[in-house]
């Protein structure tokens, strides 16, 4: 299915988006989501029908700006308790897999 704006979410497009979103989708998932996402995209295309060139976009319900609180030290979460929840810990720090590949 091609959406009204002519945009499509084929398998290649979904694969690229999944890569950007850091989700290693299986081939089966890519196939399945591609059809479903294309259908969803088609249904949301309707927003383009509204003439809204001079309308100010709304990002948030409350017009709040620069909300601050007094800059005072407060106790933070317990370090031990946080590290106990980590998938891997080394030397009292989060242990993460290698950041750079071999290449």
């Amino acid at each position: 299915m091609t959406s009204e704006t002519g945009n499509t979410l084929d398998v290649a497009a979904v694969a690229r988006l999944a890569e950007l979103a850091r989700i290693s989708l299986s081939d089966e998932e890519l196939q399945r989501y591609s059809g479903q996402l294309d259908q969803i995209l088609h249904s949301v295309d309707k927003v383009g029908e509204v003439a809204a060139d001079d309308v100010v976009p709304m990002s948030h319900p409350q017009p709040l700006v620069n909300v601050t609180r007094p800059d005072v030290n407060k106790p933070c979460v317990d370090r031990e308790e946080v590290l106990r929840q980590a998938p891997a810990v080394e030397d009292d720090r989060f242990r993460v897999p290698q950041i750079l590949g071999e290449e």
Partner: peptide, 15 residues
């Protein structure tokens, strides 16, 4: 612009 931006404008119109 076509999707997120346009949706935010529709949001204004709904409000």
């Amino acid at each position: 612009d076509a999707y997120y931006g346009q949706a935010q404008k529709v949001r204004t119109l709904i409000a």
